[in-house]
């Protein structure tokens, strides 16, 4: 059985990327230095690692979630903002495994089309992708939500104005 120890550094808490090893999501634990660590055991001689960020606006029922959040948060007043940058890391790599393999993934600040991370390991690594990408779908959906919010607020202002004028 091979053991793969993954350490992620250079990420802030909000944009904490998630890791999948051979297609299976892996749970990360924060250590005392603020890095995230995960340990995976596999019988295979290599592991395919995918580091990804899940934007809320890329969920299958994003419109339903957004609508419920909008209503519950009193027309968006108490709704935390969605990720403005919509930048997600596209990091896919294959690492050869020894009995114990340590892999450090050190992230760079998020900039579109820039290198996303560096790797430190005692085994060979093959990068399939390593870049910050702009999620255009999430960005378009964020704009749709913003437009929806503005329209609802305008309608509310007109309705309130109408009833106020009637009352006076």
């Amino acid at each position: 059985m091979n053991t793969l120890h993954i350490k992620i550094r250079g990420v802030d808490r909000k944009s904490m990327p998630r890791i999948a090893v051979d297609g299976e999501s892996v749970k990360c634990v924060k250590n005392e230095f603020g890095s995230y660590e995960a340990t995976v055991q596999t019988a295979r001689p290599e592991a395919e690692i995918c580091v990804f960020s899940l934007l809320e606006l890329r969920l299958p029922l994003w419109w339903l979630y957004a609508l419920i959040s909008f209503v519950v948060s009193v027309f968006g007043i108490f709704n935390p903002p969605y990720n403005r940058a919509c930048l997600v890391p596209d990091v896919r790599l294959k690492v050869m495994l020894a009995e114990r393999t340590d892999l450090s993934v050190i992230f760079y600040p998020a900039r579109p089309q820039q290198r996303a991370a560096e790797f430190e390991t005692n085994m060979p690594v093959y990068e399939a992708a390593n870049v910050w990408t702009l999620d255009r779908i999430a960005r378009r959906r964020r704009r749709i939500l913003l437009a929806f919010k503005i329209v609802v607020w305008l309608v509310l202002a007109f309705v309130a104005g109408y009833f106020l004028a009637k009352a006076l």
Binding site: R18, A20, G23, S25, F52, L54, R58, Y65
Partner: peptide, 10 residues
């Protein structure tokens, strides 16, 4: 691809 993520995570 895990871009859209598993349902539970969403």
């Amino acid at each position: 691809s895990l871009q859209t993520g598993p349902g539970g995570l969403g």
